[in-house]
Design a protein around this nucleic acid. Sequence first.
DNA 1: AACCTGCGCAACCGCCCCCAA
DNA 2: CTTGGGGGCGGTTGCGCAGGT
Length: 317
Amino acid sequence: MADKKGGMVSSVPMIMADKKANTAFHIKRTEKENQGNQIETSPRFPFPFASKRLEFIKDLVLKLEPTSTQRKKSKKTGSQPIQVREETRKGPWTEQEDMQLVCTVRLFGERRWDFIAKVSGLNRTGKSCRLRWVNYLHPGLKRGRMTPHEERLILELHARWGNRWSRIARKLPGRTDNEIKNYWRTHMRKKAQERKRNMSPSSSSSSVTYQSIQPQTPSIMGIGEQELHGGSSCITSILKGTPADMDGYLMDQIWMEIEAPSGVNFHDGKDNSYSSPSGPLLPSPMWGYYSPEAGWKMDEIKMAPQVSYSKGIGPSY
DNA sequence: AACCTGCGCAACCGCCCCCAA
DNA sequence: CTTGGGGGCGGTTGCGCAGGT
């Protein structure tokens, strides 16, 4: 165990993917649910009123992410913002960490990952948090095997664009660049092996072949019929809500208020996608794929008892 | 039952770009 | 104009599991 992930593996429950039921993690959560052990009794977010929540978030943001003017000030005075980081964690994510990350992203939106990493209390880098969110926790993600149509699309797009995985991923809603990249590698490995085996002149399908790929699935856009990210869990129930809009108060508006406390026009046009109270808050196309009807509220988050904004910067449960 | 091998995939690394200060 | 930080992206690594021997 002397690899880069080493040391952690033994102390952390494995979350590696289960080929049949998505992940061991998901199985665990499903069992929990089946037993009626949803974390119903857990404490809820402590602020019943939106204004109080807003105050709390703003306070938190200011503590952890000083405004530009504050940054200037602290440069002069030499004072430092709150230091939260101890030692950066690496390796597999635990359910607890996932919960914390999901809650934080729901609160603050899919941006400023470094800040999210701080606020969440996770000793992870912003990059790590982003990756975990994008590749695993994002509500729009599909799981399971690629459909024949997806396979064909990948082959076609790769032929056109090469290894531009993120670009290809954009054409495959619910699939991440990482997933596609992994799929391609496996695919190519198989192809290479096939080719080795079939070096006989009769089977000279040198380039990418589509023979096993029939366009049976008419549309990959209908995510409704697809399994949405493993299904049952406290996290997925959280994920069903809309992103961080709080009683109509969007996180971006909070950001803007913090940066410009003198009052801002939220509709100044630069970032329109963020200014509509009912529209998708986040730029990712994924957001379009899950329940727009659910007006997500912090009150509805079933926080696990251990979840804490540790280091004394927020509520501890 | 024990061992080996290959596969699938999560997560990390390093480079690059963009943008605010 | 310069610089540093944040985030995006492609490449790589290595672990767990399943299937084969």
